[in-house]
Amino acid sequence: MTVRDVKELLEAEVLCGEDRLDEEICGCFASDFMSDILAFARDQNLLITGMLNPQVIRTAEMVDMPFIVFVRGKVPNEQMIELAEESGMVLLASRFRMYSACGILFMHDPNTKPCKTLYSDQK
């Protein structure tokens, strides 16, 4: 799945980073708690959040997540977009709520396993 696929699936607007839309998504983390992102995000380059302040950009940068989708119709201000542009990040804005956005991406992720397999993996 590429960033462009995410944009299309979530009917998102591209706010910056148009030149990186063909890059691959290797994993996704969704949260509004910055400390949880810092603690638990590993080898994931897509962040889904409804939080809207410059700390989101800095947090994502700290854990090497260059792609961010803002959900719930939230649109970052110019300061945030400039900060992201300085770091070469891609910002997307989607009207979907976080639960729906995660569900849509999960359903379309070619690596998603059927639920039965997921359950058997846990045993």
């Binding site: 708690f33 910055m34 400390s35 949880d36 810092l38 603690a39």
Partner: peptide, 12 residues
């Protein structure tokens, strides 16, 4: 309001 203060800072 900035997404911190969840008591994860020092443990992180």
């Amino acid at each position: 309001t900035l997404g911190f203060g969840a008591g994860m800072g020092l443990p992180n």
